[in-house]
């Protein structure tokens, strides 16, 4: 077998099937959407080549920038929430009672499908029968807000289930990373008289820095292309108050029959996400790699 694997042609042959699949399923559609972005096309009739017009419209489209702003807000809050998840995992990973059970509880939202989560939170947010407003009214609030109807609140209201949905995922990653730190290091620090906070900040955090960086990129990229809960819970409304880039793209392509413009927005979404990823990676790039 070694002989076979040393032949470069053979390696190429083994890699080829997967490469073709990735090409057909990912890169060709990507190229196609960039190409459709150059067209005036309703998705049904004939295409007409209009050059960069769709991209120019997009750059001047306030609705697109509003939705992009909402996506970036989500990215910001997702990144911020990582601190909380990290703190929770630190507590879970230190030997406290019931850590196992708690870990499972935190993981449950990850096991639910997005649509189920959306339906659940639609019920929670229901302005007159929802558990949240019932509770507020019980506490004496006269006019609790209509969470998903008020354009000033809707975006933040919907962020809550989105963050909640992914909490378990990040906690799991951090937990696994923290468990990997050799016990001897922690014990040595304790003997040297370090406080639990110092251990967390000076020893544990630097040792899992690589993982933290990955989660930051995941959180940001995931937020920028986020779609599910927004689509089910508000459809981007009222009047675009909770629209994000992906839901705007979907709306253009599928409800206003503007496939060309929708494709252009989709391609811009990709470009924006790529640029942000590069910037984040540059910002978090390390001078020296820490080892256990």
């Amino acid at each position: 077998m070694n002989k076979v694997m040393s032949n470069k042609w053979m390696i190429a042959f083994y890699v080829l099937p997967a490469l073709i699949l990735v090409g057909i399923l990912i890169f060709i559609p990507l190229g196609l959407s960039a190409y459709y972005g150059l067209m005036d096309w309703n998705g049904i009739g004939d295409m007409e080549f209009i050059g960069m017009e769709n991209y120019i419209t997009a750059v001047q489209d306030m609705k697109f920038w509003d939705s992009a702003f909402h996506s970036f807000l989500l990215a910001f809050f997702s990144t911020l929430s990582l601190i909380v998840y990290l703190a929770i995992s630190m507590i879970l990973a230190s030997k406290i009672k019931g850590a196992d059970l708690l870990r499972k509880i935190y993981l449950i939202p990850m096991l639910l499908s997005s649509v189920a989560i959306a339906q659940l939170w639609i019920k929670v947010f229901n302005p007159s029968n929802g558990i949240l407003n019932k509770m507020l009214m019980g506490l004496g609030v006269d006019n609790p807000p209509a969470w998903l109807a008020n354009p000033d609140i809707v975006l933040y209201a919907i962020f809550i289930p989105i963050l909640w949905q992914y909490a378990g995922f990040y906690i799991l990653i951090y937990y696994a990373a923290l468990k990997n730190i050799p016990e001897s290091l922690i014990e040595a620090a304790k003997i040297d008289g370090a406080s639990p906070l110092q251990i967390a900040y000076r020893i544990k955090l630097p040792l899992i820095a690589g993982v933290v960086k990955v989660t930051i990129v995941l959180a940001i990229v995931g937020s920028l292309k986020y779609f599910d809960l927004i689509y089910v819970m508000t459809g981007g409304g009222p009047n675009g108050a909770s629209e994000v880039m992906a839901s705007y793209m979907y709306k253009l392509a599928f409800s206003t029959n503007d496939f060309g413009y929708g494709s252009a927005i989709g391609f811009l979404l990709l470009v924006i996400t790529l640029i942000v990823t590069v910037i984040v990676r540059k910002l978090t790039a390390d001078k020296e790699e820490l080892q256990y």
Binding site: N126, A146, G237
Partner: peptide
């Protein structure tokens, strides 16, 4: 109109009517 109508689906509104609310 019922509270929060802009955030409620037709289905939810219907269930309010059908439960006598």
């Amino acid at each position: 109109f019922n509270a929060g109508y802009n955030g409620l689906s037709d289905q939810e509104a219907k269930s309010m009517f059908m439960s006598g609310q």
